[in-house]
């Protein structure tokens, strides 16, 4: 199994869903990303396990990263979706995987990405009274001491 094979089968079904393919990951368009993931889950590739959702703050944009696992092919796939800071919303995957519920809450808590269609988008780790999102690069709070630059 290789990323190129997965990329090819996505391209056959959804000709303009892919932004970029690298050996390590596939970057998808935000608008069409839910049907593609549905296809990956229910299609012949059988990525039935949503392993992890995380994100990376690229200062200006946030990459949401999905790790899918296929028990049939014993292979892990990495999917990326790039969101601009001006519009940090993306479709929730809770209708496809119920495991997405807490994972998306975590990404919301730490990065402030809003998942539309999520049934219960609350903070999961940090105190409910916080309004900041700690893993954003511009995070600041009382008692937070940044590492001094040498």
């Amino acid at each position: 199994m290789e990323t190129a094979i997965v990329s090819k089968s996505i391209q056959e079904r959804f000709p303009d869903a892919i932004v970029e393919t690298k050996p390590e990951w596939i970057c998808l368009k935000k608008e069409i990303f839910t049907p593609v993931l549905q296809f990956l889950k229910t299609g012949h590739l059988a990525f039935i396990n949503l392993h992890c959702i995380t994100a990376v703050d690229r200062q200006g944009s946030v990459e949401v990263v999905y790790h899918l696992y296929s028990f049939e092919h014993k292979w892990m796939l990495t999917i990326k979706v790039i969101l601009l800071d001006s519009d940090l919303t993306i479709d929730s995957l809770t209708s496809l995987w119920s495991a997405a519920n807490w994972l998306e809450r975590e990404v919301f808590d730490l990065f402030g990405v809003k998942f539309t269609g999520h049934p219960d988008l609350r903070r999961i780790l940090n105190p409910d009274t916080w309004s900041e999102h700690p893993l954003r690069k511009d995070f600041k709070r009382d008692g937070f001491i940044p590492r001094p630059v040498r």
């Binding site: 940090n126 937070f144 940044p146």
Partner: peptide, 14 residues
């Protein structure tokens, strides 16, 4: 966890 930690209190006296 003194630097760059959002979740850790800086010691018992704090």
């Amino acid at each position: 966890f003194y630097h760059d930690s959002y979740s850790v209190v800086k010691g018992a006296e704090a």
